[in-house]
């Protein structure tokens, strides 16, 4: 694996800028009622660090690097699995009082509007 930084610094900054903007806009619309699952969900998403941990581990050349690389994989896998388990559980709990018409787009939008203000 090469670390010549084929992707230049400015390209990196462009990616960071667009991703940050995306995260800000998406989360700005989430109603306050979903803040905990959302946080847990975003916690799961940064668990993709496990991919980096595996890449580092596969390139480990000494026992020290292997140990730390193993740790990276272990912790990353914990982040992914734990994050998914708690998020899925929490989201499964939300339901409306009228179970038959589960879709309340108006209601959801109403909450979303206020999430920004609070």
């Amino acid at each position: 694996m090469t670390h010549d930084l084929a992707m230049g610094g400015f390209t990196g900054l462009y990616i960071f800028m667009l991703a940050a903007f995306t995260g800000w806009v998406i989360i700005g619309r989430v109603p306050a009622i979903l803040h905990t699952p959302l946080m847990s969900g975003s916690n799961f998403v940064h668990g993709v660090v496990v991919v980096g941990g595996l890449a580092a581990l596969l390139n480990a050349a000494t026992p020290l690097q292997q140990t730390i690389g193993f740790l990276a994989g272990l912790l990353g896998a914990g982040n992914v699995a734990g994050g998914y388990a708690v998020t899925e559980r929490m989201l499964a709990m939300f339901h409306t009082s009228d179970a038959k018409t589960a879709v309340h787009p108006h209601h959801a939008r109403h909450h979303a509007k206020h999430a920004k203000k609070s």
Binding site: I15, F16, A19, A20, F21, T22, G23, W24, I26, I27, L38, S42, N43, V45, H46, V48, V49
Partner: peptide
């Protein structure tokens, strides 16, 4: 993924 979560 990292930067999106960071901003969020």
């Amino acid at each position: 993924a990292g930067m999106m979560v960071g901003a969020a």
